[in-house]
Design a protein around this nucleic acid. Structure first.
Length: 271
DNA sequence: CCCCAGGCGACTC
DNA sequence: GAGTCGCATGGG
């Protein structure tokens, strides 16, 4: 993938390994908007404007280093896709989702947004998060940052309900309190996947699925396979051992795909 | 009216 | 430890 990094600008020349629409619409991020030229993305306190053209994709942003990491630019997705080849259905999914990448998002933002995402629909998830930021995030150059943990810790259960979080309101208050009181969200980077997952499961509102998503989308752990209703439906097509238990399905998939499990899951999810 | 949504926690047994 | 069930709310 040919990429040029300049101050406040990243240029990605037309490539099979980068499709901004597929990246954003694969259910891993919620703070983005379509525009007539491409997309606008908000992440933590950063913003990027994405211009899509035939010759490639241009990213104008406030911090090119942040977004180089965010878009996982140094990772070779061509090799990942090659290594995943071998099953007809997965090959078909990869062909149809070849521009998907896994974003490297901020842990706090990912934890909060994926608690909101549980058993929820995407328009409503986006609306709640946008309101949360508009009401509580620092105003920077015409947009709002994701709120800091200090600001989040002042918000009430009633507030979270009022922005459409529903019954997840109490989970949010408790988890924010735990993080504010020192739950070590930054130490999880250095722990093995299953140890990090065990810690995340202590947070209210974080179950197996949400923990896997947080580990994959924020902590760069790829030896896991988040199981949702869609993944269960395609499990059979991957010629996997017969089982109807979600945990067993996930374990079988990780046994098969190893460190590429998270990528396989994301291609399949988009497809 | 129904069902579903990138499920979780509480409650059973 | 595994199997149910209620849950807020908006979209299709």
């Amino acid at each position: 993938m040919k990429v040029i990094i300049e101050p406040r600008k990243i240029t990605i020349f037309s490539s099979d390994d980068f499709n901004i629409g597929q990246i954003l619409e694969s259910g891993q991020a919620f703070r983005y908007k379509r525009t007539d030229f491409g997309y606008e993305i908000y992440s933590l306190h950063h913003k990027a404007s994405i211009y899509c053209q035939k010759a490639g994709t241009t990213i104008f942003c406030d911090d090119e280093k942040y977004f180089k990491n965010y878009f996982d630019i140094d990772n070779d997705y061509g090799k990942i896709k090659l290594d995943l080849k071998g099953n007809d259905f997965l090959d078909e999914a990869i062909e149809g989702a070849k521009g998907v990448r896994i974003l490297k998002q901020n842990p706090l933002e990912t934890i909060i947004t994926f608690i909101i995402s549980a058993n929820n629909n995407i328009p409503r998830i986006k609306k709640s998060i946008e309101k949360l930021c508009d009401d509580n995030g620092e105003l920077i150059d015409g947009y709002h940052a994701f709120p800091t943990i200090e600001k989040l810790s002042t918000l009430s259960q009633e507030y979270f309900k009022s922005i459409g979080c529903g019954y997840r309101d109490k989970y949010l208050v408790k988890t924010i309190h735990a993080i504010h009181q020192g739950f070590p969200i930054n130490k999880l980077f250095n722990l093995p996947t299953q140890q990090a997952k065990k810690l995340l499961l202590q947070l209210p509102g974080v179950g197996g699925k949400v923990a896997d998503c947080i580990l994959l989308f924020a902590y760069k752990k790829t030896d896991l396979f988040p199981m949702d209703t869609w993944s269960q439906k395609v499990y059979w097509a991957l010629c996997m051992p017969q089982t109807d238990k979600i945990n067993e399905m996930s374990n079988n998939l990780v046994a098969r795909f190893g460190n590429l499990s998270g990528y396989a899951q994301q291609y399949l999810y988009y497809y």
